[in-house]
């Protein structure tokens, strides 16, 4: 009892950096959540549609006639006069307002707007960025955890060198990546989490994809424990994943052999592990 209180007092007095020495060792991971914002506006719902129509009606009622409308009316009067045969032949206009309107309508009909539903939508091509233009999309990649593989946000341990080394090792031994990560993580690496996130962007997606990481602070957090066998080998209890949020800018994923998908909110819920999805959806903007 007394010992316990002393311990808590000690913890309170000592600066935090000293108190990090604990029997529990966790590996630090950085993950990046790359999100593509909607390109086109979402379709209006019923209420929005009716309110939009209402506003337009009111606008029309309160407005005055435009020059064009005045011209149309004048043309009509003129036409009646011609029918009666009382109009001057000189006054007859070359192009009536109706002609002008028709010509413009024709031009408008000729112009083809790009379709809001793209080829990628029709094929349900989940690796294309040109899908679901009116939705937020998040990049997820497939990673193996033991004998199972999950779609997760691209992530890597904080120290890049260790990661590369580890890939080699895991390929030889287990063929799984995250189990063997960070053996006895040395503290000499000076990489901050943000830098790790930037490196990770390049490592995963190639140089073509440009994304803007928002802020130096992580926006989300997730931790998971390793199975016992791995815990014994690596000496750490599990992994703490700090998730950075990034806005997609331009470019495409060019990395070969990367199993990835761009998913919207609903698909995300389906594809991600439930616990993981809870953490991820915490910091994502809602979508209807």
């Amino acid at each position: 009892m007394l010992l316990n209180t002393i311990r808590t007092v000690n913890r309170a007095i000592l600066p935090r950096s000293y108190s990090t020495v604990s029997p529990e060792k966790w590996d630090l991971f950085t993950a990046v959540c790359i999100e593509r914002k909607p390109v086109i506006t979402p379709a209006l719902n019923e209420l929005e549609k009716s309110y939009y129509k209402y506003l337009q009606d009111v606008e029309h009622e309160r407005s005055f006639k435009s020059d064009f409308e005045v011209r149309m009316e004048l043309d009509k009067k003129q036409a009646e006069l011609i029918k009666q045969g009382t109009a001057d032949a000189d006054v007859v206009v070359k192009q009536t307002a109706q002609d002008f309107l028709d010509a413009n309508n024709e031009q408008l009909n000729k112009f083809k707007f790009a379709d809001r539903i793209t080829e990628a939508d029709k094929e349900n091509n989940q690796t294309s960025l040109k899908r679901k233009l009116d939705k937020h999309l998040v990049l997820v990649t497939k990673q193996k955890f033991g004998d199972k593989s999950y779609y997760i946000l691209p992530q890597s341990p904080r120290n890049g060198k260790l990661d590369k080394h580890l890939v080699l090792v895991t390929k030889q031994k287990f063929g799984d990546k995250s189990y063997y990560i960070l053996p006895q993580s040395p503290r000499n690496d000076s990489e901050t989490l943000r830098q790790a996130a930037e490196r990770l962007l390049k490592d995963y997606c190639g140089n073509d994809l440009k994304a803007q990481i928002c802020g130096n602070a992580p926006t989300g957090f997730y931790k998971y424990k390793y199975p016992h066998t791995v815990q014994e080998k690596s000496g750490s209890l599990g992994a703490k994943v700090f998730i950075y949020f990034a806005r997609y800018r331009k470019g495409d994923v060019t990395k070969k052999g990367l199993d990835f998908k761009w998913l919207d909110r609903i698909e995300l819920k389906k594809e991600l592990h439930p616990n993981y999805h809870d953490s991820v959806s915490q910091f994502l903007v809602d979508e209807e």
Binding site: S17, L28, T192, L193, N216, G220, F221, F242, Q282
Partner: peptide, 20 residues
């Protein structure tokens, strides 16, 4: 969510927290 992530980071390492 962000505050939680920062708190966890602080528990792990003060330096990384300060950077963040």
């Amino acid at each position: 969510s962000q505050q939680k992530a920062l708190d966890e980071l602080r528990n792990v390492s003060e330096e990384l927290y300060q950077e963040a």
